[in-house]
């Protein structure tokens, strides 16, 4: 298995996975989406809320605010030394005490832990008008996307097959160039060549339209183009690595079970 980055910035990455199979590509995708833990607010104590929104709506909105997560420092609550009661190594509390008139932003929360803060400080949470007050303690913990989508470290996480397109005995009729919706083909020396294979959506229009039946598409190349967009809790490379670690752990567990059964 190899990974080759095509483009990479803070949140969006595109990479090609080679020497793999669909089962592995899909498990990796699913692991990134639903198994990598992140911090999010899960429990909210509301001491005072005279704003125009209900307590539940405010709690829900706070839950959706992404928090910077350092996976080295926190445990999942069910595997923590405190036994799930809540301690500094599995939860962080964020406090808020504001009075209107004011727009409450995610950056107004005061976190117990200076490194577990909202990813964006300018998310509007609620508008307070004259005389309205909000006094809240929000408790963040680790969770996975499987439990609630607010814990997902990625928003878009998809892959598609990168095929191998072979053109033999092309007479240069340019039919495939005309018909391809993704502009995969280009003319070179009077012949069509598949210049941008990674754009191919496997629509097979070129195969259907080619008068000479010169185009062949092979889908089982073991190459996959991944398009992943992060939320920002942690760097994208960390998400990818963590997902692989989790998969490895699961595979080892599976091996153990198989060994036990086959004794």
């Amino acid at each position: 298995m190899k990974v080759e980055f095509i483009d990479e910035d803070d949140l969006k990455v595109r990479f090609i996975l080679t020497e793999a199979n669909p089962a592995f590509a899909n498990s990796w995708r699913r692991a990134m989406k639903s198994l990598v833990p992140t911090m999010a607010v899960d429990y909210v104590d509301i001491y005072m809320n005279t704003s125009l929104l209900y307590d539940e709506i405010i709690a829900h909105r706070i839950g959706l605010v992404p928090l910077k997560t350092d996976l080295e420092r926190f445990n999942m609550q069910d595997k923590c030394v405190c036994g799930g009661e809540g301690c500094p190594s599995c939860q962080v509390s964020l406090r808020l005490n504001v009075e209107g008139p004011k727009m409450v932003y995610s950056g107004d929360f005061v976190s117990d832990d200076p490194e577990t803060t909202p990813v964006y400080n300018n998310i509007p949470v609620v508008q307070l008008y004259e005389g309205q007050q909000l006094m809240i303690e929000a408790i963040a913990r680790l969770g996975t996307g499987r439990e609630h989508s607010k814990f997902q470290p990625v928003s878009v996480c998809a892959y598609r097959i990168v095929p191998e397109i072979v053109v033999e005995d092309c007479d240069g009729c340019e039919k495939c160039i005309e018909v391809c919706p993704r502009n995969v083909f280009e003319m070179e020396n009077g012949k069509a060549i598949p210049a941008k294979v990674i754009e191919c959506s496997l629509c097979y229009e070129c195969v259907k339209e080619c008068p000479l039946d010169a185009i062949k598409i092979d889908e089982e190349t073991g190459k996959f183009l991944f398009m992943v967009e992060g939320i920002g809790q942690m760097p994208m490379r960390t998400v990818m690595r963590k997902a692989l670690d989790i998969l490895k752990e699961k595979a080892e567990e599976m091996n153990k079970i198989i060994e036990e059964v086959s004794l």
Partner: peptide
């Protein structure tokens, strides 16, 4: 109030609302 995340894809969008 503007939704914090996109209903469909889950990307955070509210930080761009005022901009």
């Amino acid at each position: 109030m503007f939704p914090i995340r996109c209903f469909s894809c889950g990307a955070v969008i509210a930080h761009k609302w005022e901009e």
